[in-house]
């Protein structure tokens, strides 16, 4: 097996596994850049995946056909956004510890979604499999380019390209627009931002809401491209992996996207390594834990220093010094 053949297997697999991570990690960037720690990403993904499973199923029954998974991505975005408002109210308005609220959000998400699955599907522990997924396709024209065609444009879901495009968009929004500057300022020094007339609470609500929207999409993408149905185990760790990607990407959209791709690469390697010479000798546990070990090393400053936004995790209390 030549190196090119290996790349033809690994790169499309990477793009597929990375897409949900990229969306969710970008959501984390919004929230934490505004100063609200969000370890509830896992729960937001669960809500997104659940919503996508249920809405795709019902849309299919209504006759929406192949459009149903795409529509359900939008519905999941709305559901994730709404669900994240619980975190926003509790941690911004009620000044609860943001980590505590995030933990509760994860627990609530799994509880509520599985509770609803049982309610909707007469006690079944999982939703029916959806008929229309967002499938892997060969991109017309581009996939026949020699060398890079099979690598980058064959057997890839559209959502992976959308994830990368949105990653670039988020970077532009955060670093090239007044809105982005304001969002980042309330995460660094909310009191200073407040004296300049920026509504700290509003910006933080927006940050958390966007994390819900993106986390919801991330979970939905995972469901309609990879999982196909929802149960209590569908989202087990992807949200925390996205959190790690955000930290590994140093709270920067481009970094989060790169880290998402990299972690997707590690994950897909752990699945495909059996087909690849040399790698099949490597214990899969090394690939599985690599993202987490690397994130720890980045945090410790061995691989470039990662610094959280200054006011990340600190509730803002007006008038307090």
């Amino acid at each position: 097996m030549s190196l090119l053949d290996v790349l033809d297997i690994i790169i499309p697999a990477t793009l597929l596994t990375a897409a949900p991570l990229i969306f969710t990690a970008l959501g984390g960037v919004f929230s934490e850049r505004s100063g609200v720690v969000n370890i509830g990403l896992e729960g937001l993904m669960a809500v997104g995946a659940f919503t996508a499973a249920v809405s795709t199923y019902f849309l299919e029954n209504l006759g929406a056909g192949a459009a149903s998974p795409w529509l359900s991505l939008l519905i999941a975005a709305a559901a994730g956004g709404l669900f994240s408002l619980i975190h926003a109210v509790v941690s911004i308005s009620f000044r609860a510890d943001q980590t505590v609220s995030g933990v509760a959000l994860n627990l609530l998400a799994v509880g509520v979604t599985v509770f609803l699955v049982k309610l909707f599907f007469e006690g079944a522990g999982q939703t029916p499999f959806i008929k229309h997924r967002i499938d892997k396709v060969d991109i017309p024209g581009l996939h026949s380019i020699p060398v890079i065609g099979p690598m980058l444009f064959s057997q890839v879901a559209w959502t992976s390209y959308i994830a990368i495009a949105i990653g670039l968009m988020v970077w532009a929004i955060l670093y090239k627009t007044p809105f982005g500057l304001r969002l980042r300022s309330v995460g660094e020094h909310p009191a200073a931002a407040d004296t300049l007339g920026i509504n700290v609470y509003k910006m933080r609500y927006i940050g958390v809401f966007l994390s819900g929207v993106f986390g919801g999409i991330g979970g939905a993408v995972y469901l309609v491209t990879i999982a196909g149905n929802y149960n209590a185990m569908t989202i087990s760790g992807q949200g925390f992996l996205a959190l790690a990607a955000m930290v590994f990407g140093k709270w920067h959209p481009a970094g989060a996207m790169g880290a998402g791709l990299f972690f997707g690469f590690a994950q897909s390697l752990s699945i495909t390594s059996q087909q690849i010479p040399l790698l099949d000798q490597l214990p899969d546990v090394i690939l599985l834990i690599a993202p987490y070990v690397l994130t720890l090393l980045v945090l410790a400053g061995f691989v470039g220093r990662a610094e959280a936004p200054k006011a990340d995790g600190v509730p803002y209390i007006k008038g307090q010094r």
Partner: peptide
Amino acid sequence: ELINIVIALIIFLVGS
């Protein structure tokens, strides 16, 4: 799962 929901709600409330 209702039990998890109740426990999550209690955490939110204690946190608030």
